[in-house]
Design a protein around this nucleic acid. Structure first.
Length: 868
RNA sequence: GCCGGGAUGGCGAAAUUGGCAGACGCAGCGGACUUAAAAUCCGCAGGUCCGAAAGGACUGUGGGAGUUCGAUUCUCCCUCCCGGCACCA
């Protein structure tokens, strides 16, 4: 189109259609006006988004991870909830009975910190924050069923934490044992791991955190380690990344336990538990004839015994412990230099009765396996490094299997760590292949009573005791006569008392409250002491989504039948930072609940989606960087719809999103264009508005109709199958652009688009937009004269027939390079299309004088002529 | 070290998984409207080169090879970035 025409069209388009009253620039889309109007309407109907308790519809449970009530939402929340909200609305429009609840993960440390800093009770601070954030969520227009709201810091919720704890205890899955905790000498209290910064107290940066042994409550998650691992294979709706992270975390390892007997001391007979056993764990028992030393973790109990009367050894061991701890604090235990010390003692290898020296080494971890290994320098990198340094014997016991070409077996380079090979220097096992040897040797060890095949896990039991105030009290009592006594179920909940001095507490703050601590034993009636620790907040979030199904039940955590209807969660959405802890605890809890007959599902979540982070200027938003974008500010400047739409449009949901204000401005322009498109052309009062669309349409109208149906297909497909909301929105933009262009051409060229068909386009455009920009969509729906609620209006359907192109532009390649485009009927035959292609002028000039070797025709896609 | 995910214009990205690379949007440029600005609307736009222009040629999806008529897509090797696990025996 020549340049001069542009101005003419621009002018024309700027004028209203002649058959409409002139609408001037006063009609500019004002998001605040529209959103405030609908906000008020939605607030006045608390049942608007309620899930139906009894329904014949198919259910859909969509859930976003519940927030910690810090006081304000951030853009990461907005992105998370915009995703879930779009999905919930889409499923409503597709006729599902949707459960879309929200709640508050409201126990935890920040409330205590705030209490100390502002002198506000944690409860007050927390509930105030919840009110603020709930208001933000509502203003953003998220469609939550608030009648099911769960607030984990309230007794009607946490009493069931206590109830579950008693069940765990009953089943022997809650137990108490001594365990190391972080202790700050200045605070005189225990710190959570999160409160330890570079090995120092977060409040006293110059004070090193000490390790103290305390009695702690543990939940036996390791009982489910194998099932938790196995069932990961079933979770096909989960990201591979998360499944891998959980597999790593569980860290299953098959191997063999072998007992070495400690030999009698040679030179110093006066001490040392001669004849006691050192159990080692190995995955390579096939290499045991190559074991030339044992290596013990410095914290190993036998090391303690051996060094008790040996100050020299004690000194060495203490240094090894210190080195290990330092490396752990820095976080790179893999990098420290290996050190060790010979204990002066020997142990007997039960396979060949050989005496091997017993060492203590800083690279052996007490909390993995048995804290002791057999060192096989020839077949393990670490052992090799250590043996070289301390000149220990290196004995080859595995040879590589020769390849077909090789006549003789070459000596392998050391260390030779491959699992394929055959045994030498291994007595009766010589000649066996590694995996066969492992099986046979494990079996033999078991037969002779000095070992057995076993499985170890990296996963540890879950320590849930916290020496903190703002959490669920652990419902346990300690009686001088009866020992550990659970609080009887009928006495639940154990209420968390309000008046507690957190700031000056020594140890658990609840311990400073005699009226809380001192109780009578329910068994003997004598004096007893209450447990003063509270539960880890991950307990709260391990089962909260079951509570949503029956949030007001005061006889049980929830009704089994109701939970069975809603579970598993169809779609769970949240940040990948919860990929391990929260999601493993939740899976564990579900399996336990199944085993006590509460539910029937094995897994809580069918499909999991982990959205990317919201970043700004290439960095995670944080107060210290000053790159925080506040949702409130976005709502005030651009409106909730624009803020939400931008968080869906700027990147596909699984990728990190770099927030740019200019992007929101673009979205706001788009929403303005949608508004004006409806505003300008809608004529619901016209008698033609609701007439059926005529069979025959003008070319331009037919083109728009095709675009409409193609768009419905694209948005539906991208929503349903791919979750690419960015392309959904792009498709809607294209439809709008196409419609606007055709209306403009109609005006210029006088080619009619029937009003009744225009109405159809407008209705569908609004429907497509409804899950993403609910405020504007509702406003436009009303402007189109629609009476029913948009929330549950039917999602549009497309007609494949009407979406079909009648003519296609077919690229013609010559030797794979695009040379021309030809237009052919959509149903043209191969012969027809190829003939047309060959007749094309440009094509002819390219193939002139050459020989056609091959013609490739891909129906509807392209023609490729191969010439030589 | 092992595992997972990435790399496409100035920027965010798209390409319905082997078939026109860059849709849609941002930023940019030109134009219309306006006294002017804002807002709005129309148009241009990967790079290099040829051409006054219309148009054309070459080149281009982190790098290198390969398979194929045809590769952002498949195979192999390499580089860099993000995430997880890690002296795990």
């Amino acid at each position: 189109m020549p340049q001069q025409d542009n101005s003419e069209i621009a002018t024309a388009v700027n004028n209203a259609r002649p058959d409409h009253p002139d609408r001037s620039s006063d009609d500019r889309y004002d998001p605040q006006r529209v959103e405030n109007k609908w906000f008020a309407r939605w607030q006045s109907d608390p049942q608007l988004y309620a899930a139906e308790p009894h329904s014949t519809k198919k259910k859909y449970y969509v859930l976003e991870m519940l927030p910690y009530p810090s006081g304000a939402l951030h853009m990461g929340h907005v992105r998370n909830y915009a995703l879930g909200d779009a999905l919930a609305r889409y499923m409503w429009m597709n006729g599902y009975n949707v459960l879309h609840p929200m709640g508050w993960d409201s126990f935890g440390l920040p409330a205590e910190n705030a209490a100390i800093q502002n002198n506000t009770p944690p409860r007050q601070w927390t509930l105030g924050n919840i009110a603020k954030m709930k208001a933000q969520m509502n203003r953003l227009g998220f469609a939550y069923d608030w009648s099911r709201e769960v607030t984990t810091c309230l007794p009607d919720y946490y009493r069931w934490n206590q109830w579950f704890f008693l069940k765990f205890y009953e089943k022997g899955l809650a137990y108490r044992k001594k365990s190391k905790v972080n202790w700050c000498p200045k605070c005189a209290t225990v710190l959570a791991n999160e409160q330890v910064v570079n090995g120092c107290c977060w409040r006293h940066e110059d004070t090193r955190v000490e390790q103290r042994e305390l009695e702690q409550w543990f939940l036996r998650i390791t009982k489910y380690a194998d099932e938790l691992l196995r069932d990961l294979d079933k979770l096909e709706g989960w990201p591979e990344k998360v499944r891998t992270m959980q597999r790593n975390w569980i860290g299953r390892s098959e191997g063999t336990l072998v007992d070495f007997k400690l030999d009698y001391a040679e030179n110093h007979t006066g001490f040392g538990p001669a004849g006691s056993t050192i159990s080692v764990f190995t995955t390579r028992v096939d290499t045991i004839f190559g074991a030339t030393s044992l290596q013990l973790a410095p914290q190993h109990p036998i090391v303690g015994d051996l060094s008790a009367d040996n100050p020299d050894l004690r000194g060495h061991v203490d240094r090894l412990i210190a080195e290990q701890r330092k490396a752990k604090e820095v976080g790179d235990i893999g990098e420290i230099e290996k050190h060790g010390v010979f204990t002066g003692r020997y142990a007997i290898n039960p396979f060949n009765a050989e005496k091997v020296p017993v060492w203590v080494a800083n690279y052996i971890l007490m909390d993995y396996g048995t804290g002791a290994i057999m060192s096989v320098p020839a077949h393990d990198e670490r052992d090799y490094e250590f043996a070289k340094k301390y000149k220990l014997e290196i004995r080859l016991v595995i040879l590589p299997i020769p390849s077909d070409q090789e006549e003789t077996i070459a000596e392998p380079a050391l260390p030779f760590t491959a699992h394929q090979g055959s045994l030498i220097n291994s007595g009766p096992y010589n000649g066996l292949e590694c995996s066969a040897a492992i099986k046979k040797m494990s079996a033999d060890a078991e037969k002779h009573g000095f070992g057995k095949a076993t499985v170890t896990y990296r996963l540890k039991d879950w320590g849930i005791s916290r020496q903190r105030y703002w959490g669920t009290p652990i419902p346990m009592l300690y009686c001088e006569i009866d020992g550990i006594v659970p609080v009887p179920e009928k006495d639940l909940p154990v209420i968390l008392p309000d008046a507690v001095d957190i700031a000056n507490a020594v140890g658990s703050p609840l311990g400073g409250l005699p009226e809380f601590v001192n109780v009578t034993c329910p068994k003997c009636g004598g004096p007893a002491r209450r447990e003063t620790d509270t539960m880890d907040t991950f307990v709260d979030s391990s089962w909260y989504f079951y509570r949503y199904t029956d949030a007001h039940n005061d006889r049980a955590p929830f009704d089994s039948k109701i939970a069975q209807y809603w579970f598993p969660i169809n779609q769970y959405i949240g940040g990948v930072e919860h990929a391990i802890l929260h999601l493993i605890y939740s899976r564990f809890w579900t399996k336990f609940m199944r085993d006590i007959g509460l539910i029937t599902n094995d897994e809580p979540v069918e499909r999991l989606f982990t959205q990317g982070m919201v970043i700004k200027d290439g960095a995670k938003m944080s107060k210290s960087l000053g790159n925080v974008v506040s949702p409130d500010e976005m709502v005030a400047r651009y409106g909730a719809d624009a803020a939400r739409l931008n968080s869906l449009f700027a990147a596909p949901p699984d990728r990190d999103l770099d927030w740019q204000d200019s992007g929101v401005e673009g979205i706001q322009r788009f929403l303005g264009r949608v508004y004006r498109f409806i505003e300008k052309y809608a004529a619901p009062e016209s008698p033609d508005w609701r007439e059926p669309v005529p069979e025959r349409l003008s070319d331009s109208a037919r083109g728009l109709q095709r675009k409409l149906h193609q768009t419905i297909k694209r948005v539906t497909d991208d929503f349903q199958e791919r979750w690419h909301f960015n392309t959904c929105i792009a498709a809607i933009m294209e439809l709008l652009n196409d419609a606007n262009r055709r209306m403009m051409e109609e005006h210029v060229e006088g080619e009619k688009i029937p009003l009744t068909f225009l109405a159809e386009v407008q209705r569908n455009l609004v429907l497509l937009l409804a899950p993403f920009a609910p405020y504007l969509a509702h406003e436009l729906w009303e402007m189109l004269g629609e009476k029913g609620s948009l929330l549950k209006a039917s999602w549009p359907k497309y007609s494949p027939q009407l979406a079909k192109e009648e003519e296609l532009q077919i690229p013609v390649q010559i030797n794979g390079k695009l040379r021309s485009l030809i237009v052919v009927p959509a149903d043209a035959t191969e012969d027809f299309v190829v003939e047309r292609a060959l007749a094309d002028e440009k094509v002819r000039s390219f193939i002139a004088g050459k020989q056609i070797v091959k013609r490739i025709f891909v129906p509807g896609k392209l023609v490729n002529i191969v010439v030589r």
